[in-house]
């Protein structure tokens, strides 16, 4: 299987590559548009600030490539937020794959939302064999509200989307690569999706 992790200078992406290696697959890190288009599975990571991440995507024309991919694509954390239409972080327009906006958590509790939290109302093959209220690892200050595209939800200050799906585009707010065995199971489910 041909797996590409989009490398656009977004933080710790080696962890995703290692997690995939532990599952017995090899993933390459690349920002080469044709390699990305030809991949069987594409992972779109992202850690850091939305503004600089979006700028890097535009510089490498990836902002035009990603929304038109037809194979399964998995956005992770900021990757998920950038797949939305707009994010309050830096007031940036995203890729618009999910027609929803991303907001900053109201300051009613500690921000960033950091640590292990439960995911529930799971509805996607991404969560095959994952139990309701399983713990996964989150670190973020912005959230996507519950919408028609929500395939898992979590509560912190308010209920929000822990994962989104629209056709071949899937995304998690949590870090599956850092979420112990359940996270590895979720990654494995993604890799096992049909093209």
């Amino acid at each position: 299987m041909n797996i590409v992790i989009i490398d656009y200078g977004a933080g710790n992406i080696k962890s995703i590559q290692f997690a995939i290696r532990r599952l017995g697959y090899n993933a390459i890190l690349s920002n080469n548009t044709s390699l990305i288009q030809q991949a069987d599975k594409v992972i779109f990571p992202g850690v850091g600030h939305a503004n600089s991440a979006m700028k890097k995507l535009k510089d490498s024309k990836l902002d035009q490539i990603i929304p038109n991919l037809t194979q399964p694509v998995l956005g992770i954390c900021l990757g998920m937020q950038l797949m939305c239409k707009y994010t309050e972080e830096g007031a940036v327009d995203g890729l618009g794959i999910f027609p929803i906006s991303v907001y900053r958590f109201p300051q009613k509790s500690k921000i960033p939302h950091t640590g292990w939290n439960t995911i529930e109302k799971l509805r996607s093959p991404l969560f095959n064999s994952i139990q309701e209220k399983e713990y996964t690892y989150f670190v973020h200050s912005f959230y996507a509200p519950i919408s028609d595209f929500t395939i898992a939800q979590t509560e912190y200050i308010i209920p929000f989307s822990a994962a989104l799906q629209k056709g071949n585009f899937l995304a998690t707010q949590f870090h599956p690569e850092k979420s112990s065995s359940p996270g590895e199971r979720i990654l494995s489910n993604f890799l096992n999706l049909n093209k």
Binding site: N12, S15, F18, R21, V139, K178, S179, S180
Partner: peptide, 29 residues
């Protein structure tokens, strides 16, 4: 980073952007 599937922090004498970049790039969370 290659061995474990939970987050980890690295500290001790870190004093520059280069230090941090190298640690994050190698898989520190």
């Amino acid at each position: 980073a290659a061995a474990i599937n939970i987050p980890f922090t690295v500290g001790g004498g870190i004093s520059s952007i280069q230090d941090v970049q190298s640690l994050l790039k190698n898989g520190a969370d």
